[in-house]
Design a protein around this nucleic acid. Sequence first.
DNA 1: GCAGCAGTTTGCTCCAGCGCAAACACATCG
DNA 2: CGATGTGTTTGCGCTGGAGCAAACTGCTGC
Lengths: 235, 235
Amino acid sequence: MIRDAQMPPQTLAAMDLFRELPPAALETAATCARVRRVPKDMCIFNQGDDNVRAHAVIEGSVRITQSGSDGAQVVIRFIGPAEMFGTVALFTDKRYPADAITLAETTEASWSEDELMRLMARYPQIAINVILIIGKRLQEAQDRVRELATQRAERRVAHALLRLARQAGHSTVDGTVIGFPLRRRDLADIAGTTLHTASRILTGWEKARLLTSHNQHLTIRDTSEILRIAENATD
Amino acid sequence: MIRDAQMPPQTLAAMDLFRELPPAALETAATCARVRRVPKDMCIFNQGDDNVRAHAVIEGSVRITQSGSDGAQVVIRFIGPAEMFGTVALFTDKRYPADAITLAETTEASWSEDELMRLMARYPQIAINVILIIGKRLQEAQDRVRELATQRAERRVAHALLRLARQAGHSTVDGTVIGFPLRRRDLADIAGTTLHTASRILTGWEKARLLTSHNQHLTIRDTSEILRIAENATD
DNA sequence: GCAGCAGTTTGCTCCAGCGCAAACACATCG
DNA sequence: CGATGTGTTTGCGCTGGAGCAAACTGCTGC
């Protein structure tokens, strides 16, 4: 087992993958985990790689993107602390279906297929947790499908931003701050539009004082108005 | 237990949910299943309903659609024999996230949350099967997201049609026939376009002899050309 | 038979937003 | 410090396809 850093078992208690598990299970999981510290802007895995493992972010954040056979790519999601990623591949075609890139210096734990299967056999709650997590992500993906199929670009960007704020936003005295560097390009790739359109929309919102933006760092000033844009059908 | 029809346990052996299970498990599952015969165009469950159950089609087919808070709707997928549906809801918010409507006279089995949980506790392979199935659907949903975000209507319709043919097509001497009635409207709702655009595209393909269509009954005549439309980036 | 209805085809108009191009802002580094 | 590179803003023309309206087709029931 490769290990760059130690990890206390209680770190795992908060993770979505290890909810509701007895301390003994966390202990076992901690001892067979591979923990790595990965610098910013580094790849954790690439689409198509085999040798799949179950991953989880301990600290930092990761962007998951998928590219088609043509070059076109979309951002699937951002992964923050305590969230697992890259795990579905273990159960399906044993190849990562997407790229994972760190957005900041990130500590990441991972388990091999054998280790996870052994853990799951011993603690079936882990399988339930996996179902819970990917079930939720399936519903989110289906919501995105509906959005993309039926809504205009501005509403989609609003939804994307709210989703990010809910997932990775931390509130401060004067606004919700998105917890990782977010390029216009990324936002466009989530909302299914172009960099240009996303930029225009954000500039508009900045002028209307709905948010401020500096150096890939977004702060939402008027959540309720963005919510209105996201929800209001007559727009 | 309500039961309109008998079901021999071996019927379950082919179902995605019960793969790789010992005969005893199928026996148990069969005895606690609720089996119903549902006429064409009837609702099995509605979006928002609680009292969720795990469902599976034994014979016939079902259309799963999701509507947003505005009226807009998309077709999530079509479910054919041996496929489970409506099961994710058991693990997440205990409400069906979509509507299920029969497309033909359909025999459907279902299990309550308690029954499924009990079965899963006894036969953990069922949990693995659930992960496999929804993992696959998650990847499909993400592919659709990428398609919708990056591709034109004609390519999306081509992809949708190929997916349907793979999932529910049966080959005959002179073409692949889609196994259930498919309206232009449905195809549009899968591909994320309008009824009008879908109609125009299909009419074009019919003139080019790529397919024939009569009374909601589609036959694909030239799969390779439709594949070319779906894949060719320079189009 | 005909009326009624659900689904389909087709014509026309219009605009959101894509695609391209150019300028600009802001970091990092030799 | 200027150079280089990465991300952002903005202008402009063009078009795919949405939106609306109307005609048409082929079931189903009376």
